[in-house]
Design a protein around this nucleic acid. Sequence first.
DNA 1: CCTCTTACGGATCGCACGATCCATAAGTTG
DNA 2: CAACTTATGGATCGTGCGATCCGTAAGAGG
Lengths: 211, 211
Amino acid sequence: MARTGRPREFDRDAALDAAMQIFWRQGYETTSLHQLKQVMGGLSAASFYGAFGSKESLYREALTRYLGTYGQVMAPLHDETLKPRDALEQALRRSARMQTDERLPQGCMVVLSTTNASPENDHLQAFVAAERQRTRNAIRRCVERATAAGELRQDADVVGLAVLAEALLVGMSVQVRDGVSRASIEAAVSNLLQLWDANRTDDLNPRCRQR
Amino acid sequence: MARTGRPREFDRDAALDAAMQIFWRQGYETTSLHQLKQVMGGLSAASFYGAFGSKESLYREALTRYLGTYGQVMAPLHDETLKPRDALEQALRRSARMQTDERLPQGCMVVLSTTNASPENDHLQAFVAAERQRTRNAIRRCVERATAAGELRQDADVVGLAVLAEALLVGMSVQVRDGVSRASIEAAVSNLLQLWDANRTDDLNPRCRQR
DNA sequence: CCTCTTACGGATCGCACGATCCATAAGTTG
DNA sequence: CAACTTATGGATCGTGCGATCCGTAAGAGG
């Protein structure tokens, strides 16, 4: 049965998408309702609150949408059918490509959009931080899997490798926003993988490079 | 000749220090004048504007103070009398220690305090980004020096190594704020240096590890 | 002691913020 | 067509923002 009442005059989905992008680019608190209504198609306050409830609930919905779409570049990390090295490489390279896509805001929304928050929005900051923790755990598990499976040497530094990999993942957000090129980031990813390979059990190359 | 007029009743230097810390912890736009006046010793609006001019000029002064004090952990990067590897290691380890000092806000003020900005503060964002670019250039020069001096192999990937190092430097700000321990960050630094050593000209270790 | 200069407390400014209200419009349902 | 439901435009709310103003206080200089 179809919805009754006067039909909505704007495309809710397109509006949400526009909101996601401006939150992504500019951050939560630093984006005003006025800006939001403008980029969402010039809708009125009544339409805005009717469709999205509040600025905060719009942000949560936008973030959820991000996680379900662009944020899926991280999916390989949670896919245990992939070899750990492949999972990490895919997550890093897909992130690098997505974050430098010129049609989108630069960097990662999870890293950038709620970095600065007033005390009354601490809960939002914690909400986004929890998502980063998920990724952090996944990277850690990925390295541990490699050690357990004998892909990495037993004495490889699991913590150090995982933390360095995650630092690259979050660090690239700041870098690409500052104008560092996709090729440069990809080169950094290759270097990280070179380090991985130097810690492989089957590493017999005296120079430790996989060329 | 001494200054004439009624003497200031608060310690300007201590107030500036308190302002720096709250900007560092919370960010520029997301810190209100009310909060600032409170942590700066409960001073009045008149005293605030009399001593600092405006919120923005206070922020600039606070950032300058940061660069001249805590930010000096980066100084080794600009010291060409140091060996490139030592310069990089010192900058990274000192940053890691400073950023995880429990008596201070977690992370780096240059990376965190103006991540989110409204369009009217784009110039401030650019101002801080320029400081990051300085560091980025210094890291790059550091790796280039190592290649030129024959410390790193000619075919070492200068760009990749430099970008990875800088990613660790900026990434650790997010990580430590999320609760990642100093020891973990230090382990990541050690891993980065292990990669450096794997690219050394004098690397003869078949496993490429400097233990 | 009087003047000059600077700092202070406190009221207040104009504005933009996020959010709500209400009369009206535009559909669906019976 | 009448009753009902939802959306819309536009005015408006209360609040907190950054910033200014003013009368008074506290020291220095002549």
